[in-house]
Design a binder for these strands. Structure first.
Lengths: 182, 182
DNA sequence: AATACTATTGAACACTTCGTTCATTACCTA
DNA sequence: TAGGTAATGAACGAAGTGTTCAATAGTATT
């Protein structure tokens, strides 16, 4: 990829992230984004079809990255993997709190609903992989896909609650709540 | 309230509901609403400040009504009330399925996320009232407000899953899943 | 260093939607 | 029936959208 492309892409992402931490998505205009990114109007549309696509690509980059990171670290502990999926989810909470990629900033802003929705899509894949560990604790009458949905949703809701509370509790406590609830 | 006011309000609500069952909220314009409602532009703005307020008022009307209905029926069974909150939640699922106020139509459309978000606000109040029954089954380490949030969220997620599946399963099965999950 | 290629620019474009105004008309209720 | 209130519709400025295009500047290749 051309260095110019990389630079403008970065500039747009940064400007957008910055705006998202302060304004509602619906209130942000392309005008503002390109002004802050210092990029021509035509350039913006050469990179992203619409504002919605920009959001989508940003989220993909953010959440794919954070989940891969959590899964990667898991491998160091893979002896325990069969006992409990704790490491993965604990690492997820930890990464969220560490404010990688301004995730904490974004999740604390007015648009957290928006991000959490995208986050859930990625989490569903993760829950599916970790399903065996949960199935043992839950009633077998529950359909498989219901359970996957429930795990992903409970994680999201836990994050939402954590964020609303100011993310004061340590990841270790939160992951415990998550396990007690799910 | 003047009959004329009631009539235009109704006409706008109906037109809006109709559109919501077919298009995404963001794609619906005031233009379309007033055309379908057969109401003057100025009239619309005399009733609702913006499109968002219209949505808000519609949701309030819908969900307050359905929850009150479920709670009302509960009183017939209030001998069992101390054992389990099942009647309330079962009635909620039943009302949803009965398509009162086109709720089913709306929940099956592209905007279900939108409605479920509003629905959750009302559910939180309900969960708070029903909390004692849940607290017995759950670990006491979980904070009270975390549990309330978890109950409301699990209900919403259950509905979401139900709807995505085409609402084929009977309310009795769904309420069972809800209890097993929560 | 000369070349061909490709990205960026910025202004201008037509188009859509928004929310407001206001004089006129129609309707309601007491 | 009289006085008050709601609805009307056309017109308005403001703001945003997504596109076009010729000119410019940066990159990669040889």
């Amino acid at each position: 990829m051309d260095r110019r492309q990389r630079k403008t892409r970065r500039a747009i992402f940064d400007a957008f992230t910055d705006l998202l931490s302060r304004k509602e998505f619906g209130q942000i205009t392309v005008e503002e984004i390109i002004r802050r990114a210092d990029v021509g109007r035509a350039t913006f549309y050469a990179h992203f079809e619409t504002k919605d696509f920009l959001l989508k690509e940003l989220c993909q980059e953010l959440f794919c990255h954070i989940i891969d990171a959590a899964c990667g670290q898991e491998e160091h502990h893979h002896i325990f993997e069969c006992d409990t999926p704790a490491p993965v989810f604990l690492h997820l909470f930890s990464h969220l709190q560490k404010n990688d990629n301004h995730l904490l900033t974004l999740l604390s802003g007015e648009n957290n609903e928006l991000f959490l929705r995208y986050f859930k899509t990625e989490l569903r894949r993760l829950a599916e992989r970790q399903l065996p560990q949960f199935e043992a604790q839950k009633d077998p009458r529950l359909p498989r896909d219901f359970l996957v949905e429930h795990i992903a949703a409970t994680f999201i809701e836990t994050v939402r609650w954590w964020v609303k509370d100011g993310m004061r509790l340590p990841p270790e406590t939160i992951v415990e709540y998550f396990y007690l609830a799910v």
